[in-house]
Amino acid sequence: GPIILQSYRVIADYEKNSKSELAAKNGDVVEIVEKSENGWWFCQLRNKRGWMPAAYLEPLDGPDESEEQDPNYEGDLHITTKDYSGELDDELSLQEGENVEVIHKLLDGWWVVRKGSITGYFPAMYLQKSGETA
């Protein structure tokens, strides 16, 4: 039978920064083809397809908390796979190969991680589950 795709509303204008992305305007309604845990969602808008940041999308039927995982304050051990220098003051700056604890996996691809006594946002794209004790 037909595949029913979820519809989301674009909540702010989005300009694409690379070829594989999809540009959209505030108020556009897109269909979600695939949700990646790194916060990029593959979307369809009229006859165009491309990746959009999940942070720019909201479900048509109001806030969707059902897919959001609960925080895990014990921390889920991960290792950073790339250097990242925080741009906003709530982000962490870490080098490749650092062990961190993931506290909250957010759908927008920015996870709350703890490094020692410091907690902040870090891109999920640069994290890999380590499964080892720090």
Binding site: A12, N17, D108
Partner: peptide
């Protein structure tokens, strides 16, 4: 179709959305 996500992390939520969440 080849669907490879962008290589950079997605942008943080737009400023107006962050204000609403705070």
């Amino acid at each position: 179709t080849i669907k490879r996500p962008p290589e950079n992390p997605p942008p943080r939520p737009p400023a107006e959305v962050r204000r609403k969440q705070a």
